[in-house]
Nucleic acid binder design. Structure first.
Length: 417
RNA sequence: GGAGAGGUACCCAAGUGGCCAAAGGGGGCAGACUGUAAAUCUGUUGGCUGACGCCUUCGGAGGUUCAAAUCCUCCCCUCUCCA
């Protein structure tokens, strides 16, 4: 706990690692007043309820929020159950799936469970913006929309780029920043925090808050973490993410797959490593004293430790070395229970079997894998596309290094589903 | 309302009657190599089949033709300019 620090010291802590802080002076001023009045600052983070898996990109922001909490401030975690239906205009997503009430609630619970790996539950309030946006009348919407101009809206890079490129921009997308702004109006937010891609929305919110006669929120943006591909920002829909609630082995393995140039970046944004430590490591790698592979292993272990503890980190590292350096079997090999009806004369086409077990998406794909030597049965590579095998209990099927299934042949096959 | 351009596989994009299950790139997957699931190189990338081959797919529905992503009709959607 770092509660009770002087406002100027708080500013120092809070601005560290930020892309932008608008305005630093305002923050200091607000902290001073709050401290005099003995109240915490109200800090807002908005979240889209469509993909409730929190990944390392979100964690960058959440860890900053945690700092706010440790300084004694109050977090409002706004679940965008209303705005989520408008459709997030950033990025490629065309139309968002409409979520049902239950889905939203379920996703919100998933969120809560995960954010508390990082946030302090005592100082976190989870709220739903449908509660106030859903009550806004059309007249209220018009009033809100009258507070911002088309020209200013088009300043947003995302809109103007799509507009110039001839990609459709729908009118309701303009409502997205406005709705987000109204969240801040409703909650009388002191500080809003988010990824640097949110800068436009946050700044628009400041103006709109002023228009409603409120003090504009202070804006704090943080770097966007690149995904595992090193190109796009991390996001679940792009599949380049590492979820903080993913299995430790998965977290470890996925971090081992980042391209080398990304190593310092990940250390900086995903671990507690300070700039000095990172710089030292970069130098060591440049000198050849530190193998990038080992740096990555350190990164992976550190991140796993952060969210799953020491033991999980050790185990994940061990498993990774076993599977990928020594080519051993993964520790958890799922069983597949083969239906005897698939057998013909005690045998079954290997391609068919691979498709059944899920090791290949289809029998055609299985044939391709076979042709490429990517399939092993009980340790031996099988090449022939049309190969038939005589399955036996405990037979081990492997595709590539990562996927394996153990065959089970029950004598009794009572199926009640 | 008028004029024009477009809609192709997971994504971008070529293809304007048969040689098209559809070029190329990205992404994915597999193999080689390695220091790792990095980088690089190679292969592969609709489904069914041991195989010959068959079936489904180029916005949607019909039609012409021995043969349609490609031609015709209607419809839906997007963009640009004009009003």
């Amino acid at each position: 706990m770092t509660e009770g620090l002087s406002p100027s010291r708080q500013v120092e802590i809070l601005r560290e690692g930020a892309v932008q802080l608008i305005e630093e002076g305002e923050l200091l001023d607000r902290l001073e007043r709050a401290s005099r009045e003995g109240r915490p600052l109200r800090v807002k983070l908005g979240a889209d309820p469509t993909a409730p898996d929190i990944h390392l990109g979100h964690a960058v922001v959440l860890r900053k929020l945690r700092q706010f909490q440790d300084l004694g401030h109050q977090v409002y975690f706004v679940v965008g159950d209303f705005t989520g239906r408008i459709g997030d205009p950033s990025g490629r997503s065309d139309t968002r799936p409409l979520l049902t009430e239950e889905q939203v609630r379920a996703n919100a619970r998933t969120y809560e469970r995960q954010i508390h790996k990082i946030l302090d539950p005592e100082r976190t309030r989870v709220v739903f913006n449908h509660d106030w946006l859903g009550r806004l009348s059309f007249a209220g919407v018009v009033q809100l929309a009258a507070k911002y101009t088309v020209a200013r809206m088009l300043e947003r890079d995302d809109y103007s780029r799509r507009f110039k490129a001839g990609v459709p921009v729908y009118i309701h997308e303009f409502l997205y920043p406005l709705a987000q702004a109204y969240d801040s109006v409703h909650l009388r937010v002191d500080v809003e925090i988010g990824g640097s891609d949110q800068t436009f929305n946050f700044l628009a919110t400041r103006e709109i808050m002023r228009d409603y006669g409120l003090e504009p929120q202070i804006v704090l943006t943080l770097p966007l973490l690149e995904g595992l591909d090193g190109v796009e920002k991390m996001s679940k829909s792009l599949g380049n993410h590492v979820g903080i609630a993913d299995r430790p082995q998965e977290v470890y393995g996925r971090l081992m797959s980042i391209p080398d140039p990304l190593i310092p970046r990940y250390f900086e944004l995903c671990t507690g490593a300070g700039p000095d430590q990172v710089a030292a490591m970069v130098q060591a790698m440049a000198r050849g004293d530190l193998n990038p592979r080992d740096a990555k292993a350190r990164l992976a272990a550190e991140v796993v430790r952060l969210y799953h503890g020491d033991e999980a980190a050790r185990e994940a590292a061990e498993e990774f070395d076993a599977v990928f350096r020594r080519g051993d079997l993964p520790s958890e090999v799922p069983d597949y229970r083969l239906d005897p009806a698939e057998l013909e004369g005690g045998r079954v086409g290997l391609a068919r079997l691979l498709a059944l077990t899920g090791l290949a998406a289809s029998a055609s794909e299985a044939r391709r894998l076979l042709a490429q030597g990517g399939v092993r049965v009980d340790g031996g590579v099988v090449a022939g596309e049309g190969t038939k095998v005589r399955p036996r209990d405990g037979m081990l099927l492997r595709v590539g290094k990562r996927k394996a299934v153990r065959l089970r042949l029950g004598t009794c096959t009572i199926r009640d589903d």
